[in-house]
Structures are given as C-alpha cells and as structure tokens.
Computed example of a mutant assay.
Amino acid sequence: MNWKSFLLGAGVGIAGGYLLKETLDTKTLHSPEKVLHAVKNSFKKEGPIDGSWIGMVPESYEVYPVKTKVYRGGISRRQDGELQQYEFVADSTNGTVLNIQKIS
C-alpha cells in the first residue's frame, strides 16, 4: 500500500465526514408530533384541552429580518363553557414556540 494513497483516502474521508456532519446539523428538524406534544403539555397546565392539530410539512416564516421554517398548529379547549381556539407557530429546527394567538 502506498502512503500517499492512504493519506489521500483518509483526508477525503475526514473532509466528507465533516461536511456531512455540518449538513445534518443545519437540516435536522424536530418531529411535528414532539412539538405538538410539548405545546399540549403547556396548555394542559391551565386545564384540559378538547383537540389539537399540527401541519406535518414545515412552512416558510419570516419576521423581518429572520427567516425560518415553522410548523403551524392549533389547540382548542373549553373555559367557562365557551370554546376557545388558539393557533401557534413553532420553529421546526428547535421546537421553540414563536407565536400563540387566540382565534376565537
């Protein structure tokens, strides 16, 4: 075996592994189910919920100058006999809830 070939192969392997790691770190998305579970648990602290939903495909979201991919979802619950519905926006890369808005 030639040392030059060995070192070239090792260098290519190390560079390829580093590039793959960087790509996976920036492209990794949280599972929408895990994001919904976390939001539901937060709402359950204030009382029972009737229903929930989340979009399974990340959408583009921009709040000047920040651009990211997000999941949109919703929670419904009854409080004092009245149906209340909330819509939320959560970052798909880290699961952080960016906005919650009461819609009814």
Score class of each variant (00 low, 15 high):
E46H: 10
N99D: 04
E82F: 15
W53P: 10
W3M: 09
E82W: 15
Q84H: 06
D50A: 06
R77A: 01
D91M: 08
S31E: 05
E62N: 08
Q101E: 14
D25C: 05
K69F: 15
K67Q: 01
N99G: 03
A38M: 11
K44G: 02
Q85I: 11
I100P: 01
E22A: 06
G95L: 08
G74N: 10
Y64W: 03
A38C: 09
K69Y: 14
T26V: 14
K40H: 10
V66C: 05
K102C: 11
S60W: 13
G95H: 09
E87Y: 02
G11E: 02
E46S: 11
W53C: 08
K34I: 07
E22W: 10
G11N: 03
Q85L: 04
Y64S: 04
P48H: 13
K27P: 07
M1C: 01
G17I: 00
V12I: 15
I49N: 06
I75Y: 07
M56L: 14
M1W: 04
K4I: 07
D80W: 09
L36Q: 03
S31M: 04
I103T: 15
G17M: 01
K21Y: 15
I100M: 05
Q79E: 15
T26H: 09
K34E: 07
R78H: 14
Q85C: 03
V35Q: 03
G95V: 10
F43P: 14
G16S: 14
K69G: 07
G13K: 00
T93N: 10
E46L: 03
G17Y: 00
Y71A: 06
K69S: 14
A10C: 05
